[in-house]
Computed example of a mutant assay.
Amino acid sequence: MSKDLFENLIRTNRLNHAYFLEGGNEKFSLWLASKILCGGHDEECITCRRIFNHNHPDVIYIRPEGLDIKVDQIREIHEKAAYKSADGNGQVFIVQSADRMNIQASNAFLKFLEEPKQDVKILLLGQSKEGLIETIRSRVQVVKLDESDGFMNEAVSRGLMFKGLGIFEEIHVNVDQAEQYKDVADDWIKAIRDVLESSKLHAIQKVQLWEKQFENKEQRNICLRLIQSYVKALYAETKGTYHLWGNVPKYTWPELLTWGNAIDELSRSIYSNGHFTLQMESFLKKVCKNVGI
């Protein structure tokens, strides 16, 4: 298994400075970060709990803002790597959906790879190494994770079977979260589709209910990632490629550009602690049409 491989590399001090974990998921990357920074077998220690709860200062997690990872996010990595690690055990940078870095971000990230600090480890996650530019691919060690390490296998082994499970996998919700929200997940997906496919007036009226439907920061983060997934599906629909959202409207490319710009702006505003409902209303005013009212 992949876990045995990495435990052996850590034990024998042969761990490379950068990996692309093909098929990797968030839970696996956090497990690996805990092994790198802690090394123990007790995942309930303080260090491991902080890592798994996303509040360890030496584990820096990057995921797409909108449809891709942008150059400003990579610049933040450079800045954070300039500081010493808080616990003195090094830093781990985890880049979720690394195969969705745009070209400017990819070029900036290449410089980061070429000038590694000794105590920095870089974990890139993604579905296919082919999504990386060749110069990045040649500088990382690619490890295709065993299927047994994947989201869907673990979800099925726990008996998690709801309609939107595949979408939850796509937005990189971990299995624990999928289990926690299994009873409301399909309702969330339906609510998001209903709002995004409504006229502007009706969409703004309906989105006000989300304040109660998505009650806390974690749930609102999932909401945002579901919207990002929906917009990604709109692009796929226009290109005639497969997506998980079933029948969605087909837009022209200029209309899709409006959706893309709007979701990027929404992502930035939400991640910077913007007011949830007001930011959602602003987004809907940009993308929904004045029809059917």
Results as ranks from 00 to 15, higher is better:
K285Q: 10
K286H: 05
V248M: 13
E43I: 07
A86R: 15
L15P: 10
W210S: 09
G292P: 12
K80S: 10
G126A: 11
Q279C: 13
N174K: 05
K200Y: 03
V231M: 06
S272A: 15
N16P: 04
R100Q: 07
L15N: 05
W253D: 05
D264P: 00
V175K: 01
Y181H: 12
L32I: 11
F162A: 06
T12I: 06
P254E: 13
E197T: 15
N261P: 03
H41P: 00
G131P: 02
I36K: 01
N247H: 09
Q228P: 00
Y271G: 15
D42G: 04
D4I: 06
H243Q: 14
S34P: 08
S2Y: 00
D72L: 05
G292V: 10
V92G: 06
I74C: 14
L37A: 12
A233D: 00
P64G: 07
E211R: 14
E130V: 03
L113C: 03
Y271F: 11
I171E: 03
N273Q: 14
K286V: 11
G150V: 03
N53S: 09
Q180T: 14
M101V: 03
W259R: 04
V291T: 13
R193S: 15
L165H: 00
K200Q: 08
I51V: 07
D264N: 12
E134T: 09
S269F: 08
G66S: 06
M1A: 10
L110S: 02
G90V: 15
I103M: 11
D87G: 11
E281F: 07
I62V: 14
E255N: 11
F6T: 04
S138P: 09
A155G: 02
A233H: 01
I227A: 05
R75G: 13
V120N: 13
A33S: 15
N16H: 14
T241R: 05
L21P: 00
D146N: 15
D58I: 11
L132F: 08
E114N: 04
E255M: 08
V291S: 07
F214A: 10
L67I: 14
E255I: 08
D187F: 06
S85I: 03
I222M: 01
K70M: 02
Y83I: 12
N261F: 07
H54M: 06
R100H: 02
S34E: 12
G164P: 00
Y83G: 05
L145Y: 04
E255T: 05
L160T: 01
E76T: 10
L256S: 02
E218V: 11
K232A: 10
K3S: 04
K117F: 13
G164F: 00
D68V: 09
H243C: 11
S2T: 10
M161P: 00
Q96P: 00
Y271I: 15
K232S: 07
L209F: 09
K232C: 03
G292R: 12
L37N: 08
F52Y: 01
V287S: 07
G24R: 01
G126F: 05
F93V: 07
Q141K: 12
Q91A: 04
A18C: 05
L201F: 09
E218Q: 14
